[in-house]
Structure formats: structure tokens, C-alpha cells
Design a protein around this nucleic acid. Structure first.
Lengths: 348, 348
DNA sequence: ACGTTTTGCCAAAACGTCTTGGCATAGATA
DNA sequence: TATCTATGCCAAGACGTTTTGGCAAAACGT
């Protein structure tokens, strides 16, 4: 079945040179001394034999496996992880690296995470990507310091490892600005009640926009609850039932927005005529399938995957200073995705 | 940074034996001849040094990399791919194999898929998993025959490669039976209109249940449209607007079911009191977030990932005959996930 | 006591590549 | 012409394992 493929020796023989020369030519060894004709002959021979280097032998000799490990929480639960993988994979391929994936449990106690990292180290990965399911601050397993690493969607509590996270504030600013520019001034905010960065940062973005537009902040317009559909429904029900109800809602995430849709329907409010809504996360399955489509903010999962791999490559090539990058987490843009849930407020 | 770890030589030295002996002991080489005491000494030495074998050297020597490639379509688009990855990864880990993932484009023309397979071969994977995004029949790139392979969620048009797919008929039977057992006899079916296996098989399951329960098949209760929310809404609207409307709906997938929910709401039908609905796919984001939760059929993505890896392992160990397995695709169970969208039909 | 088997261990080769330190020849410099 | 430098190439060792074929010593059989 598996056909034994040509080795460097076969190429050497066909080209009539030594293996040394073949290696030099195919690797473009800096300041090698091989005549132009010989190079051509070698390249030709390699091509006709369909030669590809044996990665294992290469790895053994050079001590670089070309593998990079992606440690990802809960791959299954969310499409987000998928986009990270996709971005990382594409970037890796660009640099002739191979992505190996290990799933890890979110809140596994004890040495579980350390074991996962160790599993990757045992497999000779050159570096590791550590991706969490949502933006938060983590304390890292100690053995992660044994090799280059980059954090995705989380920051190192100790501030030692480079990290990339979404620009939550910017995303919230984009969302709320969109509402303000449509003419809204009474904008409710259905926030998450977990103590995670996103909670505070999206709220900060919300306030920032109000202030920039001289809209007074009204704390009666801000409610918090677990970031699920049902609590979102409950909150929206309450907020929209009031006589001085807001004309627009900014929701912590798309699931809460989904709940708000239901509340609006039940109260006889038509979206976006009577109520504008903006979500966060751009969960296609929800946002694109609601009626009307939910205008929301996209998280840059794909881009974070790419960024992380690119950064690793720089690190591995020694082109970048580890500490320098680790200093501040990189912020990636959260673009607004406009669908159909925002309109001008109805002239009373 | 990366600490150079102990090699087999260090272990040998510490234990006072030759590397040969160490290798034998640690690999449990069949009918090796090493005294019990020596084994203990070697094991102890290995442990104290924290020895782990260099996989690259191992791979080079044994010509087995321990890598298995997962070629997956459109990782990003769907959580389904995530569950396949998760299952495959867990099973791989169980067998001390490492999963490397390559994303491929769904309908990429030309030699694209062949190139993807080649990329994996070039990376010395021992075998490959080929996963498609939804159940269908494919023609495989020729170089996939150069090494063991298993198909996930698709079948080989040529019938050469082993495959595992969901038991669509069984799933549909479970869904419709659930409705029948709740007392429904007028059950509408909102089907997909693509010519893919699932379309025909789920329909077959639907008919099968009717027949088994002596319920006459009424073709006016079966509608087809693209399997999206909006078409689902349209179909449901039409079907439910009629005077002799069905008391229950079986939907091709959860998105169509989501559309049906909306139609029901607009027509003043309360789910499940006035209308029972069963979906297919168990897309958590939709099914768990609708009101009430959607009873639906789960696809065995995780299980297919596991099955595929297990099968590969058997193949690699030569414990199973390739042709034998390839003969018929394996069918995996599609269990019913009961939430809140089914009830007895209302006594008129 | 002598051959034979079994037990316990090891030396050395091999896997396919990269890399160091050469050695010739040709051209340049004196 | 004699020396020096640059050019073009190669032999051989190393990376860390596994595996083959052995060799002593101990155990066994007669």
C-alpha cells in the first residue's frame, strides 16, 4: 500500500552528486557553493523522483519538529473554537508548520492542564497555542514556560506569555455607536453578570459612547443576568414592559438578544420598527436565523488564530523579543455585522 | 528555555545497563530476556529522569509517526466538525496517536483535495480520516489509496474505503415514532429538497413509521424546500394555515424547525399544546434556545470520530481486513433528544 | 563431568537527514 | 613561477531510537 518514496540518496544518485550537495541545494543553505548547473540538475532530479524530505529524519537532525500544538478548551461546544482552529491551521500551513490539536477540559482541576501541555511537549511540538473558550484571565501550567507559547482569547495572569484577545471595548463602541447614529438615545443594555473581562469591557464601551455623544447615563437602563436566552428574555420583558421603555437594546451576546426577540414579540413590538437590537458574538446559527437577522458584533476568532501562529513564527525565528510582546495583550478588531435589527426610532 | 530532556542513554547509564536493555524494558518487547530486578532498575531510572522517548527518533526508526491526519471540510462553519474532531482526538489519545488537522474546502475543484491528502502524506501521517460536513457520497482523491483511510459522514462512491455514517433512517424512525406514541396521526413532514442521502433516508424513516402503525400516507402532508429557516417558515405557514392542519411536524433539520416555530407563533398556535414539533441535527444553539426547547434527533458526530479512529487502529494493527470493513458503511445511532416541543394532540 | 539449552545482557548497524571540516582544482595576486 | 584565495564538491559523523545477532554464564540433562 504505502509506496516507499524516494530519499535524498536517490536524488543524489540521479543527479550524479553527493547527498551533501542535494541537501544544500534543496535547503538553499546560505552561502553554499554549488554551481548553477548542478543546482538545476539536482532540482530536476528531485522533481522527477517526486522527492519530499522525510520530516521525521529532518526533525531528528535539526531538533525542530515543525509541529505546533493547539491546546483548546471545549472544542465541541462552540463554533468559536472552530474558527480559531481554522485561522491557526491556515497560517500554520503558510509557514509549513503542522497543527496538532489537543482538547482540554475547561475547569479540570489539579494537574490536568499541565498534563495536556506535557502531552504536547512529549510529542516534540516546537511551540504551543493555548486557547480558551471565552475571554478571560488564566494562570498557566508551569511547564508552558519550557517552550514558546501564545495565548488566544485569554491573558496570562502573570503577564509572561504573549496573548491576543478581542477588542471588547471597540466592539461595544461600534455596536452602540451604530444605534446612536440611527438616532437612538434611550438605549438599554442587557449585560452578563459574570465577573469576566467582557462584562466590564463591553459595559465600558457602552458608557464611552454615551459620554461621547452627551447622552446621560441612566442606570435604570442597565440590567444584568446570566448570559443565556432565558435570562435575556426575562430582563427584556421587564425593561420593555415599562412605560419609558428604551427604543433600542444592546445585548451582551446573541443568546440574550434571542431572548429579547421573544420578549419583543410577546409585547407586540416589531423589530426593528418599534425596537432596535444589537447583539454580540455573531453566532451565525442564531443571528442569521432570527427574523429579522440580528445585527451584531463579530469576535475575531479566525484572526486571533492567525495572529497567534504568526507571532509564534516570529518568536521561533528569533525575530521578536518574547518579553516585548508579552507586555500587553494584542487587541483585535471586533467588526459590526449589520443585518436587519436596527432602524431609526419611531417618531412618537 | 526548552530544557534538553533525558535520552535513553542517560537512563541506561543510571540503571547500569545497555541502551538495548532499556529499549526492551520500556517497550515490553515480546519475549525479551531481562531479569525482573533489572527491569525494575530500568523503570526506576526512567522515572527519576523523567524520561520520555523522542518521538521523532522513534518514528524514523520504526517508520511509524504516530500521526493521523484528519482532513475536514469547513471546520469553521459548523459545530458538527468540532464534535468529530473531539471524538477523534479523544480516541487517538487513547491509543497514543496524535491528530493533525487539515482544513479543506468543500467544493474546491481540480486537484485541491489531492493536494491536501498529499500534504498529510508528506507529513508522514500513518493514516488519514476524511470527514465531510454532511452525509453524502464522494469520489476520493487517488492518493488516498496509498495509506489506510476511513471516511466520516460520507461514503466512497467507489466502495473501496471504509466509512461511517449516521443511521438517518433510524433517527427519523425514532423521531416520528415519538410523535406517534404521543398520539399523533396527522404528522406533517418538512423535508429538504436537495438530492442528498439524508433527504431520502429521513423520508424513508417517516414512511416506515406510518406504515408500521397503519397510518395512511398522505402526500399533502409532505413539503420540500431548501433546508433553511426561511423556507421552513414558509412551508410551515402554508401547511399550518390549512383547516385540516397536522397536529405535529417532523422537520428535516433544526433550522427548518426554527422557521416552523415562528409560523406557529404567528398563527397563534402554542407549542406543544397546539402543535408538536420534532427537528433533526440537535444544533444546541437553536434547539436548546427555542421556547420551548426543541425535541430533536442528534447526529452521532462524536461517535463517528471515535469509530473512525478505532477502525484505523485495527487496520494499522492488521487486526481487520480492509475490504471487509469497506464493504458496507457502518451506521451509527441517532438518538432522540427530548426537550419540550412534543405533547399529546389536543382533544378537539 | 560433559554437552546442551536457557537466561541475561550487549555491541553495532540502521532509519534519512543536516552539517562540519575537509580536499582538490581554477583563478587571482605577487 | 610560486603563492594565495575562491569555488565546487564530498566523506563522514551525528541526531535518538529499534532491532539483529551475538556471547558469556547459569541451569539442566545424562
Amino acid at each position: 500500500m504505502a509506496v516507499k518514496s524516494a530519499g535524498i540518496r536517490d536524488v543524489a544518485q540521479l543527479a550524479g552528486v553527493s547527498v551533501t550537495t542535494v541537501s544544500h541545494v534543496l535547503n538553499d543553505t546560505p552561502n553554499m557553493r554549488v554551481s548553477v548547473e548542478t543546482r538545476a540538475r539536482v532540482r530536476h532530479a528531485a522533481k522527477t523522483l517526486g522527492y519530499g524530505p522525510n520530516r521525521m529524519a529532518q526533525a531528528l537532525r535539526t531538533n525542530r519538529s515543525g509541529l505546533i500544538g493547539l491546546l483548546s478548551e471545549e472544542i465541541a461546544t462552540t463554533p468559536h473554537a472552530g474558527r480559531i482552529i481554522l485561522g491557526a491551521q491556515n497560517a500554520a500551513r503558510e509557514h509549513d508548520l503542522t497543527l496538532v490539536i489537543i482538547n482540554t477540559e475547561r475547569d479540570a482541576g489539579g494537574t490536568s492542564h499541565r498534563d495536556d501541555v506535557q502531552a504536547l511537549i512529549d510529542r516534540q511540538v516546537d511551540a504551543v497555542l493555548y486557547a480558551t473558550m471565552y475571554h478571560r484571565s488564566v494562570s498557566l501550567p508551569p511547564n508552558l514556560q519550557d517552550l514558546p507559547a501564545v495565548l488566544i482569547d485569554s491573558t496570562d495572569r502573570a503577564g509572561i506569555v504573549p496573548a491576543v484577545v478581542p477588542d471588547e471595548v471597540g466592539g461595544a463602541v461600534a455596536a452602540v455607536t451604530h444605534l446612536v447614529e440611527a438616532g437612538h438615545t434611550r438605549i438599554g443594555f442587557l449585560n452578563n453578570d459574570d465577573d469576566v473581562p467582557a462584562t466590564h469591557l463591553r459595559f465600558a464601551g457602552y458608557r464611552q459612547v454615551l459620554q461621547a455623544h452627551d447622552i446621560p447615563f441612566d442606570e435604570d437602563l442597565v440590567f444584568s443576568a446570566p448570559s443565556e436566552t432565558l435570562p435575556g428574555y426575562g430582563l427584556a420583558r421587564e425593561l420593555l414592559g415599562r412605560s419609558d421603555r428604551p427604543t433600542a437594546l444592546f445585548c451582551y451576546n446573541d443568546r440574550m438578544a434571542m431572548g429579547a426577540y421573544r420578549a419583543a414579540t410577546e409585547l407586540g413590538l416589531e423589530i426593528p420598527r418599534d425596537l432596535s437590537i444589537v447583539g454580540f458574538d455573531n453566532q451565525e446559527l442564531i443571528a442569521a436565523n432570527l427574523f429579522p437577522g440580528l445585527t451584531t458584533v463579530a469576535l475575531p476568532h479566525y484572526e486571533m488564530g492567525v495572529w497567534a501562529v504568526e507571532t509564534l513564527v516570529h518568536l521561533l525565528h528569533g525575530e521578536a523579543e518574547y518579553r516585548l510582546i508579552a507586555d500587553k495583550p494584542a487587541l483585535l478588531d471586533c467588526p459590526l455585522v449589520i443585518r436587519g435589527s436596527v432602524a431609526q426610532p419611531r417618531a412618537n
